[in-house]
Design a protein around this nucleic acid. Structure first.
Lengths: 244, 244
DNA sequence: CGCACACTGTGTGCGCCATACACAGACCAT
DNA sequence: ATGGTCTGTGTATGGCGCACACAGTGTGCG
């Protein structure tokens, strides 16, 4: 219950004010760090984010960052919190399906905007304000369904996992459509060469379908909603079971 | 189509023999590298795997590894290939549901045995023998269903994503049950403190359920199959739609 | 009003990392 | 037998995260 036991970064992000203290005023705020780091990551991927680069971007020395952030991992937390803005406002007119779909698409769009998010090593469950707001928003999509709160949590996590997973498949360095297409073609080529029908009949059959873009193919909007619908059908089944 | 364009590591893993060449015989094989690296990763996580440590484990110098592996990323590929052994043999007696469930559980067990797999930055779609064998095995689970090959691929990927995603939630450094329990309790505590019912009613409602273990709670076997069943229900719905 | 001291940003330095490059020796095709 | 190619090695470079000591700053307390 003691708020002081919260890591410094969390305190800052929740705006928990320390009483006015002696010493010089901080020259900036963690949100400045987040902005600088995100700028670097958007431009050059997560690998382009280092303490020194972020500090240089801000015009300060490397070590000054450690007055705001305990370790590099904290930097990631702050970046995440800042990269997802507010969660989408879900139209209550829509059914739960429409709402969670909108939520999933907003999440996907966030990942598209900041592909480096997928490269961040996941290590702690979320506790920052925007992260929780997204959770809340996702849970709210199931308002009016007979799902219990834990069921809603599971359902939301399922959708969350789906979006992350598919985004991961969509080639991690998206941005360049030409690059994606080239990488996809190279992959299909190699797969065709290695996955011979005698040893890998299932894979080979998949490759024969001309429409199919291959495993790492361009996971476009159509395929996204198609797979998402499958997940939602599963949730629907659970709801139906409860309703009877 | 030219095999020589394959990266060296892939050639080695597929056992493509280069014609006998001048020069000293290689002192070891990439599989030795894989074994050493996996040993280190099992003991100390992916962070414990460095070129020098792996080399030391083998009794060679750091730079010698680069005669077998073009870069660190290749090391990861080799580790992955070696960590998953052969895919499970699926009992044809079972229906598709039983088969894909067995496949998912085998996959989950693999991730449990080698948690560091989840820390590997995903960058390339799989092309190594065992990876393809697992794909083939997963696709084979849908033998006898009306699903088309691309449908089967989507379904398998869905299950694959689900397993990865849930494993990710299960606290990435599992192993120690006490540590998991402690981390979980700390998380629930903080969440209770931060997610106040006024601003986060949905999350708060979830926390009120005494049974619930919280977001990052111990994702035990029961919850795993429960969530998996939801996914499979979605696939079932698709099958049913095709059958009519 | 003044002062003690907590806090700020800075500079230096350490150990580790991935990997480029030049080299001496080992071995097969000819 | 020998030329050329491949092996493992030693050395070196630039980057990284971060520990630590320091000088200056400004607030709360006396």
């Amino acid at each position: 219950m003691d708020e002081s036991e919260l890591p410094r970064v969390l305190q800052q992000m929740w705006g928990i004010e320390g009483r006015s203290r002696p010493g010089p005023k901080p020259a900036f705020h963690i949100s400045d760090i987040a902005r600088a780091a995100i700028k670097l990551a958007d431009a050059g991927g997560l690998a382009a984010v280092s303490m020194s680069k972020v500090a240089a971007e801000l015009g300060f020395t490397t070590m000054s960052l450690y007055r705001y952030v305990d370790a590099k991992d904290d930097l990631y937390v702050v970046m995440l919190e800042h990269a997802f803005g507010d969660p989408p406002a879900l139209d209550p007119e829509l059914g739960w399906r429409g709402r969670i779909t909108a939520w999933a698409e907003a999440f996907r769009d966030g990942l598209r905007r900041h592909p480096w998010i997928l490269q961040i090593p996941v290590q702690e469950p979320p506790l920052s304000p925007n992260q929780l707001a997204w959770m809340e928003s996702g849970l709210g999509a199931f308002e009016g369904t007979p799902l219990t709160p834990p069921d809603r949590l599971s359902a939301m996590l399922l959708v969350n996992i789906y979006v992350r997973g598919t985004a991961q498949l969509t080639a991690n360095m998206l941005t360049e459509p030409d690059a994606i297409r080239a990488a996809d073609q190279l992959y299909t080529e190699r797969l065709t060469m290695l996955a011979t029908p005698d040893r890998f009949p299932g894979i080979a059959a998949t490759l024969e379908q001309p429409l199919d873009e291959g495993y790492a193919g361009d996971f476009d909007a159509g395929e996204f909603t198609f797979g998402l619908d499958t997940v939602l059908d599963g949730i629907q089944a659970r709801i139906t079971r409860l309703t009877n």
